[in-house]
Design a protein around this nucleic acid. Structure first.
Lengths: 146, 146
DNA sequence: TGTATTCAGATAGCAAGCTATGCAAATGGC
DNA sequence: GCCATTTGCATAGCTTGCTATCTGAATACA
């Protein structure tokens, strides 16, 4: 149990992620942006247009997950979908002015939370933490692909 | 975007947690134990009995989340609930022999995944990673409580 | 050209987290 | 002893992840 809670990389990572998400939801509330909207928001922040498939790949979620996220974003007035004239299977997704107007606020929130989370670490430790996370992710991604 | 994906502690932590969970689900499949069952399993592994409230506290989830988890565990034959004679509000939760019989296998899976995830880190880095995670968690828990 | 395959998206259904709310049992103050 | 508060649990309803499966459009090949 102490083994699990305190010494398990998986347990600690999962708990940290839940705490990050809670704080993110709290701070994003006034913007109308949900955590799952963020990858879409940043992918289309330059006013560009992508298909659902491309957005799913960038967000590293499965296609039905992205479809549901886009449905909620459309409901909330954050995106528009229009049919691709060149390929009638595709829907082209674009941010609305409402969503574009929240980008700065969202970036400030993300930055504030990351700063808060790392505030007890020395500057070198912050880079170290991110580096270790990237290496752990690398191993798990390789396993996931296999 | 590169800022978000590569340099955001929140993004990286969340992505790592999702990868951990995917691998855990995959490896736990033959045991019939879902990831959310694990805190309950370990809390009651010694054959003891706890209330739903106590289990929720240990797992650090809200009461309705634990209620739903216990419902699924009951459906899967992993726990029994019996009324507390001393306090008719409480249900006393105990693991079934079926669940008790999976504990060793679950511990092996947890251990294997943690070992895999950290296999590219030097022994000192592994301790460092867990320590940094604990410190980040500490800050976020304090913020969450506030 | 026509059929087989691949590809994009939709939909159904489940897991596991959350908040809000209701109810019945226990407790505490008067 | 009675009423108000607290406490434990259930339930409704939401988000966000997943897999499995269907459909219709595009493509490839024979």
């Amino acid at each position: 149990m102490a083994l699990i809670r305190e010494n398990s990389a998986g347990y600690l990572t999962n708990w940290a992620a839940r705490l990050f998400t809670r704080e993110l939801e709290r701070q994003l509330a006034p913007t109308g942006i949900a955590p799952a909207y963020m990858p879409v928001l940043f992918a289309l922040a330059d006013g560009s247009t992508l298909t659902q498939k491309a957005l799913a790949r960038r967000a590293a979620v499965e296609q039905p997950t992205m479809a549901a996220t886009l449905n909620r974003m459309q409901r909330d007035g954050m995106i528009t979908r229009r049919p691709d004239p060149a390929d009638r299977r595709c829907a082209l997704v674009t941010l609305t002015p409402l969503a574009l107007g929240q980008i700065d606020a969202v970036e400030r929130v993300v930055s504030a939370i990351n700063t808060l989370a790392l505030e007890q670490l020395a500057p070198g430790e912050r880079e170290q933490f991110l580096g270790l996370l990237r290496r752990v992710i690398g191993v798990l991604e390789a396993q996931d692909a296999a």
